[in-house]
Amino acid sequence: MLRIRQTPITVFALLIGVFPLIAGRIAVIENYPDVMIFVGIYCLITIGLSLLMGYAGQISLGHAAFYGLGAYVSSILTTRYGINAWLGMGAAMTVTALVAFAVGAPSLKLKGHYLAMATLAFGIIVYIIFNEETAWTGGPDGMGGIPGLSLFGFEFDSVNRYYYLVWSIMLAVFCFTVNIIQSPAGRALRALHTSEAACGAMGVDVARLKVIVFVYSAVLASLAGSLYAHYMNFVNPSSFDINFAIKLLIMIALGGMHDIRGAVIGTFLISFLSLEWLHVFEDYESIVYGAILLVVTVFLPNGIAGLPTMAGRWLKHKSRG
């Protein structure tokens, strides 16, 4: 079904590699490398989330919270305890994994809508905690002074440097996830998507597999959150609210949830829409997103990644007359 070849990924990586060099010379898109850092960060979340939605068939509205946990845990550890940023990131991922396991394990045993509601509730609770625990998080005003990242004395202190850092991580995660999908575990996941009962009958531990995917996707969201915090040097709760969780959902639905390449496409489009193109129409954002999500769900169930297949089927149908 899904074979992702190496050549397109290599071409994509090269394009990503030369992009800041080109964008820097063109005045109109001068700030695009900065936007692309956010695209890369969001891609980390949506890659994991698309694995969860497209393969395990589960909706999570709690990934904004995992993203926030990643951001806050590493921010608090680095600013208050002077811990190394990379260690802080690792700690954040560990904490998020434990929390995700605690939330996911019980609700994934239940059917369809339960995880969606449980993660929605979880997301709101975490958002309230970010706002209320002022002593730790700075409350609604947020917390600043978060250190940047450096590696062996090399500071990732410019936009281009951080761009290459984020996209190297993103591409590594993408390749790793593609490998998972094409491994026996990935085949089990695809079987899970087709028929849970049949998959279980073939000896796959369905509940365990779903929990693993959920925790993996949460850890990626946490990593993304830490990268966000160390880039912005400032976090506040509003970046991690339910609207962001829904935005992630739209990215995946638009790109096509059965294909992780689709998640990347959707993330590109929605990020540029919200950070650049739609920015002036902020008041219309919610309507536009709702419309996009509805149209995609009704007319394009496989998203943009499903367009070639749909077009092929349509042409075949036409030629048969």
């Binding site: 068939g57 369809g112 829904i246 959902l249 639905a253 309507i287 419309a291 999500l293």
Partner: peptide, 15 residues
């Protein structure tokens, strides 16, 4: 599927 129906009602709600 339960997934698409949930997404459709979420879409309607933000709209």
């Amino acid at each position: 599927s339960v997934l698409t129906l949930i997404i459709a009602t979420i879409a309607a709600s933000i709209l």
